[in-house]
Write a protein that binds this DNA or RNA. Structure first.
Lengths: 217, 217
DNA sequence: ACTCTATAGGGTAAAAACAGCTTTTTTTGG
DNA sequence: CCAAAAAAAGCTGTTTTTACCCTATAGAGT
C-alpha cells in the first residue's frame, strides 16, 4: 500500500538515538523522516526546506535551545506543525510544561516502536495524542485543581546557572564566588528553588531537576 | 558486495534506543543484528540459539543484571564473544571497569553511526577496538600509575542500597531507619563511598554515582 | 589467638536549611 | 520624568544536618 507517508522531523541531542529512531520509523513505511536536528536552533535552520514536517518528535533537555523553548517557537511561527514530546521521565512538571508549551502529546523513550508509530499517526490526524500517561496527569490535575503544584517550573538565567553548579561537590560559598554573588543571595536562590521543586535538601533538588529535565549531567 | 555479515546482539534497557540502533546498523549491510535484550539476564536467555553473535553491544546501567556483571559472565561462559561497551559518560571508572570486566572497547552513545560501525568491525576482526577515548584513559592510567585512583568501584549490596536511598530528600537518619541500621553505620557507608568516589559531599556522591553508571534515576 | 569486616558509638566543626528583615536595582505606570 | 511597586540582592540570626574525627565490640574466617 502506497498512501501518503507522514513527514516528520526528529530533534534530539543524542546522535545514535536520533538516527536509530529515524531508521526505525522509516522502516514502518508510513512515516518519512525529512530531517533530524541536534537541538532547537539546529532545527530552525533546517526547517527552511520547501516541504514542512507534519509532526516533530521533540526531546526536552538539549543544549543551546531546549524542548520547551523550541516548542513555543514552533507554535508561534509554524502553528500547523504538531509536536510530540519525547522524554525519559514521567514527572508531572515536564509533561504539563511541554503540553502548555504547545506539544500535542508526550511519549516516554521507553515506549515500544509500534506505540510511537501510533502516536505519530494519531497526532498527525488529530493534532493531539492522549495516552494514559498524559490523560492520567491531566485528570489528576483537574481533580486536585492544584495549578500551583503541577505548574511547569520557570527559572531565570541565574537560578538555572545556580542549579547547574549545584550538581557538584562545590559548597554554596564556592558557588557564590563563582557567580560573583553574596552567599546570602545564593541562599535566596536555594530557598526559591526548594519551594518550586518542593524539596528540603540540595540532593533532592538535584534529583528533581534531573527528573524534570531542567538540567543534564 | 555480499561478504559475510558480522552477527551482533544489543543489550540495553531503553527499547526505542535499542531497536532504533538495530535498524540503523542493519542498514549498513555489513552487520546483522541477531537479537536484542533488555538486560543481562534477558540476554542469557536469548543466547541459546544455534548461531552466536560475534560482538555484543553492551549498556552498563541496567535493571536486574548490569553491564559489568553481564560482561564478566560472557568472558566466563562465552570467551569468544567480544563485548563493546556503550555509555553516555566518559568517566574513568566505568571505562576501566568495563575493560577489566572483559570488554574489548568502549564507545559513547553520542558517537556517530559510522564510527560505531567501524568499532564493531574492528572488534570483530581483532577482538578489541581502541579509540582515542580508551587509549587516552589507558595511557594516563599507566603514566600516573595510580591503580587505586582509577580502580573500578565495587560496592556491596548494602552500600548500593544506601547509594540509591541517597538520591532523595531523605536525611541520613531516615535512611538509617529504612535500612534498619544505626546512623553511625550509615555514616561509615557514607565515609567509605566518599573515599571510593573521591567526593566531599552527598551531592557530589550522587552525581558521581550517576556518571559512573552505578545507579539510575 | 589473630585479623578482618561490619556494626555501633561519642564528639566536633562546618555546611546546609530555615526565618525574618533591609537595601538596591529594575520595572513600570501615572 | 518621577514615584510606586516589584524584583533582585544582601544581611543577621538559629537550628538541623552533614562531614569528619577516633574508638569499640561482636562475629567470621584463618
Amino acid at each position: 500500500m502506497q498512501t501518503n507517508k507522514i513527514n516528520i522531523a526528529i530533534v534530539d541531542d543524542h546522535t545514535l538515538f536520533r538516527q536509530g529512531l529515524a531508521h526505525l520509523l522509516t522502516e514502518s513505511n508510513e512515516i518519512n523522516v525529512l530531517f533530524d536536528a541536534d537541538n532547537g536552533a539546529d532545527m530552525i535552520k533546517k526547517l527552511c526546506g520547501e516541504v514542512m514536517p507534519e509532526v516533530i518528535l521533540m526531546d526536552i533537555t538539549m543544549p543551546i535551545m531546549d524542548g520547551y523553548e523550541t516548542t513555543k517557537w514552533l507554535k508561534d511561527n509554524h502553528p500547523e506543525i504538531n509536536v510530540l514530546a519525547l522524554s525519559m521521565f514521567e514527572e508531572d512538571k515536564p509533561i504539563i510544561g511541554m503540553l502548555k508549551s504547545g506539544a500535542g502529546g508526550y511519549m516516554l523513550k521507553q515506549s515500544k516502536a509500534a506505540d510511537l508509530v501510533s502516536a505519530i499517526k494519531g497526532i498527525a490526524s488529530q493534532s493531539f495524542y492522549i495516552n494514559e500517561l498524559v490523560s492520567g496527569k491531566l485528570l489528576r490535575n483537574i481533580q486536585n485543581n492544584q495549578p500551583v503544584k503541577n505548574a511547569p517550573i520557570g527559572l531565570n538565567p541565574n537560578e538555572l546557572k545556580f542549579l547547574e553548579l549545584c550538581c557538584s561537590d562545590l559548597t554554596y560559598k564556592q558557588i557564590a564566588d563563582m557567580m560573583n554573588l553574596s552567599p546570602h543571595t545564593i541562599d535566596n536562590y536555594r530557598e526559591a528553588l526548594f519551594q518550586k521543586f518542593e524539596v528540603k535538601s540540595r540532593t533532592g533538588l538535584v534529583i528533581s531537576a534531573l527528573k524534570n529535565e531542567l538540567i543534564k549531567i
